[in-house]
Computed example of a mutant assay.
Amino acid sequence: MPTNIEMDHITIIVPQGKGEDVLRTAKQKGIPNGTVSQGYGTANEQQMKESEAHGLVRDIVSIVAATDMAEIFLKKIAEELGLGKPGHGIAYAVNVNDLYTERLENMDDASRNESEVQVITSIIRHGHSESIMDAARSAGARGGTLLRDKAGMDPESSLFSKGTEGDDEIVLIISRKETVKPIMEAIRERSGMDAKTGVMYVQDAHFVYGLKK
Rank of each mutant, 00 (worst) to 15 (best):
V96D: 04
D109T: 15
E105C: 01
M107H: 06
D59S: 07
R148L: 08
V94N: 13
L56R: 08
S115L: 06
E116W: 07
V117K: 05
I90Y: 02
K85S: 13
P32Y: 06
G82R: 05
T42C: 01
L81I: 04
T35A: 08
G143W: 04
E130S: 14
R112W: 08
L83R: 03
N106V: 06
G140M: 12
G82K: 06
E50V: 11
I60S: 10
K27H: 01
I12W: 03
T35N: 04
A78P: 04
L99T: 06
I124T: 10
T101D: 07
G41D: 06
V96Y: 05
L104A: 12
S138W: 00
G39Q: 04
R142I: 05
A70E: 11
M48D: 03
L74E: 13
L147D: 03
G144T: 03
E102M: 08
T42F: 01
T35M: 03
R148G: 02
N95K: 11
I90C: 00
G30L: 09
T11D: 00
A136L: 05
E116T: 15
E50F: 14
I124Y: 05
D98E: 15
R148K: 15
I60T: 07
M153I: 15
Q118D: 11
E79H: 06
H128E: 06
I63D: 11
K75F: 08
Y92S: 01
E79A: 06
A135L: 03
A43Y: 01
L99I: 11
I124F: 04
A65N: 09
M107G: 06
Q28A: 13
G82M: 09
N44R: 12
A65V: 10
V61L: 02
L56I: 12
Y100M: 15
S122R: 01
T67S: 10
E20P: 01
S122F: 07
D108T: 09
A26P: 05
K49N: 12
S37R: 07
M107D: 05
E79T: 09
V96W: 04
R112G: 00
T101E: 07
L56T: 11
V14Y: 04
G152M: 10
T35L: 05
R58M: 01
N95V: 05
E102N: 15
A43N: 12
Y40M: 09
K76Q: 12
A135W: 10
I13H: 02
K29M: 14
G82Y: 10
M69W: 02
I10D: 09
I31K: 11
I12H: 10
A136E: 02
D59L: 03
L81F: 13
Q47G: 00
I90Q: 00
G19P: 00
R142C: 07
T25H: 06
H88T: 11
K27W: 02
N106R: 09
E50Y: 15
A65I: 13
T101S: 12
N113G: 13
Y40F: 15
I72W: 00
Q47I: 02
L146V: 09
M69Q: 13
N97Y: 14
L23K: 03
I10L: 09
Q38N: 10
V36M: 04
S131E: 14
M69S: 11
P32G: 04
S51L: 07
I120M: 06
I124G: 04
M48P: 01
V64K: 01
T35Y: 03
P15M: 11
Q118V: 14
E20N: 14
D149Q: 12
G39F: 06
S51R: 10
G17D: 11
T11C: 01
E52M: 07
A93R: 05
R148A: 07
E102Q: 14
M107E: 08
